[in-house]
Simulated assay, not measured.
Amino acid sequence: MNKRLTAFYWMTVPAVLLFFIFLTLPALQGFYYSLTNWNGFGHQYHFVGFKNYVNLFQDDNVGNAYWFTFKFAIVVTIAINVLSLLIALGLNAKIRFRNFFRGIYFLPNILSVLIVGYIFNYLFSNVFTIWGQNLGITSLSTNILGSEQLAWVGVVIVAVWQGIAFNTILYLAGLQTIPTSLYEASNLDGAGKWREFWSITFPLIAPFFTINMVLAMKNSLMVFDQIVALTNGGPGRATQSISHLIYTGGFRGGEFAYQSANSVIYFIVIAMISILQLRFLQRREMDN
């Protein structure tokens, strides 16, 4: 038995090494560079301590990026989970061609985020505007991606459209774990669909709801590809997310050390939000 356990431990060594080399080590290097003034080129740099971290809290561009990212993440997380749960409930019902519709709804998840973003960029710029002009709909006649007030809505639409697919599959998996006998008993007691949902369905899929909420929030906070394909952070800096700011400033703006400090703060923020979400939602599961 001991030899078998030892073999299992040795089997984990390659995975641990790969994780350390490609994830842990770069993270440690990023923290190291965040304490310097390195611009990303050459070997000349000096230690500046926590000066970069202090400057982050005084930078309006950083503040605007965090504000946009939080606003975007909250709206997308709520929209994805509400819509995917409604779709899952519909697909779980006894309807014709149910498996076909499941495949259709999952299709966006297998497409490249960048490709989807560029396609929607073309639609917003050329297709929807022509439709709006022909139909006389003013709101569709102009490209919303060119508006500082509405560009973020276009990014939300694309992120929600593609994000719904994965969450729908998880909710479907959760719905299939509920015994049909519970619904039969509720029908005998005269419970309506609304009472059935809140008393049976939602409490029993609570673990799946927790997973979907945490994953949707984490993915939304890390939004990058949609920004690059749709707006590239514009107009101006209206749709610049934290990830996009770190990339453009660090790799193209000569702020490698400064944006390394931003990425450290960014990591801490995402980790704290995910932990708080898990604790709150798991406590709600226990209460149910």
Rank of each mutant, 00 (worst) to 15 (best):
N2L: 05
A7Q: 10
P14C: 03
L17T: 09
F22L: 05
T24G: 12
L25A: 09
P26L: 03
A27R: 09
Q29Y: 15
G30N: 03
G30I: 12
G30V: 08
G30T: 14
Y33P: 07
L35N: 10
T36P: 13
N37K: 13
H43E: 13
Q44K: 15
Y45K: 12
F47M: 15
F47L: 15
G49S: 09
G49H: 05
F50D: 03
N52V: 14
Q58T: 12
Q58H: 08
Q58G: 08
D59A: 11
D60N: 10
N64F: 09
A65N: 01
Y66A: 14
W67G: 10
T69Q: 11
V75R: 02
I80W: 09
N81M: 02
S84Q: 02
L85T: 13
L86C: 00
A88E: 02
K94Q: 06
R96C: 05
R98S: 08
N99A: 05
I104H: 01
F106K: 10
L107V: 15
I110C: 09
L111M: 14
L111P: 06
V113R: 10
I115P: 06
V116T: 13
G117P: 01
G117S: 01
G117C: 02
L123E: 06
F124G: 05
N126G: 04
V127I: 14
V127D: 07
I130R: 04
L140T: 01
L140A: 10
S141G: 06
T142N: 02
T142D: 03
T142A: 04
Q149D: 15
L150P: 14
G154Q: 04
V156F: 05
W161K: 00
F166H: 05
T168E: 03
I169V: 15
L170I: 12
L175Q: 07
Q176D: 12
Q176R: 03
T177S: 12
T177K: 00
S181N: 07
L182M: 13
S186A: 05
N187S: 13
D189R: 03
G190Y: 06
A191C: 14
A191E: 12
G192E: 06
W194R: 12
S199M: 11
S199L: 01
F202W: 08
A206E: 11
P207N: 08
M213N: 03
M213C: 01
M217G: 02
N219R: 09
N219I: 01
L221N: 08
D225N: 03
T231I: 04
N232T: 13
G233Q: 10
G233F: 08
G234T: 04
S243M: 15
H244R: 12
Y247I: 02
T248R: 09
G249L: 01
G250Q: 09
R252S: 13
G253N: 02
F256G: 04
F256W: 02
Y258T: 12
S260M: 10
A261V: 00
A271W: 07
Q277R: 04
L281G: 07
R284H: 10
E285K: 14
M286E: 10
N288A: 15
N288W: 06
